[in-house]
């Protein structure tokens, strides 16, 4: 009887451990968006990516539909090439969709926002987004403002 009870406790212990891992994966982590499987890759060039980094979200109308996979520098044109994956559920984005680097909150992390155009053709595996808007760098903004004040 005594061993039976301890065995029951061990069973509960193991189950609780597994449930905890599952809870962490589902509710704390981002298992669902990660595992939704099918996706396609596109890339975009920016003059300045600001604080964007790999794994930053890619959003459409504020909804997350993909993530940045890698960022490289184009050696010839001296700008940044951002590769990202977009869930295949959204395979009807027009080819002239524009990408801009936005900031969540005033000082928050940066992400890519997509703004759909009106083309009939759609983005697909390997497409390049031509219309891009770089990150807003606070220092540049301030210096621009100061110059415009000085000219007056």
């Amino acid at each position: 009887m005594k061993t039976k009870l301890s065995e029951l406790f061990v069973g509960v212990f193991l189950l609780a451990g597994v449930v905890s891992v599952a809870f962490l994966a589902m509710n704390v982590g981002n298992l669902d968006s990660e595992s939704s499987g099918e996706s396609y890759r596109v890339s975009a060039s920016f003059d300045n990516i600001g604080g964007l980094n790999a794994k930053s979200p890619v959003t459409l109308a504020g909804v997350r539909i993909g993530r940045v996979t890698s960022i490289q520098v184009d050696r010839d044109r001296f700008n940044a090439v951002v590769n990202m994956t977009i869930s295949s559920a959204y395979n009807n984005l027009p080819l002239d969709t524009s990408a801009s680097i936005l900031t969540s909150g005033l000082l928050g992390s940066q992400y890519i926002g997509l703004d759909p155009g009106g083309d009939i053709e759609v983005l697909q595996e390997g497409s390049v987004i031509d219309i891009t808007q770089s990150a807003i760098v606070l220092e540049n903004l301030i210096s621009k403002f100061l110059f415009s004040q000085a000219e007056k």
């Binding site: 891992v21 962490l24 509710n27 704390v28 982590g29 981002n30 990660e34 997350r64």
Partner: peptide
């Protein structure tokens, strides 16, 4: 509270890394 957690915590890096 929950959505910021889910957006920022990575399954592989954070959770599996910790385990």
């Amino acid at each position: 509270f929950w959505s910021s957690m889910q957006q920022g915590v990575d399954l592989y890096d954070d959770i599996f890394g910790g385990l």
